[in-house]
């Protein structure tokens, strides 16, 4: 039984934590140019920008690094009328992509959630071993872990050991 999955860290991407009250989400969506998802774990996408709803009043926006100032500008423009918090966290996290037929089981070495219940295109904040992560199921067999930078060696260390374990076939 050959092992056919890969684990890789991704290049830097623009990330924001966006927070606002329910009544201002319409204004936010308008300024961003697409509808923010309304349920926790849902994602919405427009061009190369995505929004993932992490909490009742919290979204993670991702975009190319160079597109950040555009987002900052459009949201700053509506701040007086629709107060919110937009905080650049592009450097806080590093993304790790796990893809392949064994990806889900590879994550189950350290992730207590029932990953079968995380549908394609959804993401959640959860825990991997003892590390808080944002776990997104990008496709059926492709996951992304967003990990605070200083925890990356630990998470990658665990995944490396797990890959070796899967490769040994037991």
């Amino acid at each position: 039984m050959a092992f056919n999955s890969t684990v890789e860290t991704l290049p830097a991407m623009g990330r924001f934590s966006l927070r606002c009250k329910r009544e201002n989400t319409v204004a936010m969506s308008k300024a961003l140019g697409f509808e923010l998802p309304s349920s926790i774990s849902e994602t919405a996408q427009s061009g190369d920008m995505t929004a993932l709803k992490l909490g009742p009043d919290e979204w993670m926006l991702t975009c190319p690094m160079e597109a950040r100032s555009e987002i900052e500008k459009s949201l700053a423009a509506i701040y007086p009328d629709a107060v919110h918090s937009l905080t650049d966290i592009s450097s806080r996290e590093v993304s790790i992509r796990i893809s392949g037929p064994e990806a889900e089981e590879l994550l189950s070495t350290s992730c207590p959630r029932n990953l079968a219940e995380l549908k394609s295109g959804r993401g959640v904040r959860t825990i991997f071993d003892s590390v808080q992560v944002i776990l997104t199921r990008e496709e059926q067999n492709q996951f992304r872990l967003d990990v605070w930078r200083s925890f990356v060696p630990h998470v990658m260390g665990l995944l490396t050991v797990a890959v070796a374990e899967f490769e040994c076939g037991l």
Binding site: I40, G55, P112
Partner: peptide
């Protein structure tokens, strides 16, 4: 390990997240 229903996420999830 308990499973706890989060009234915001509307899901029963592992105690380790709480």
């Amino acid at each position: 390990m308990l499973l706890i229903h989060c009234p915001y996420c509307k899901e029963k999830l592992p105690e380790l997240e709480f």
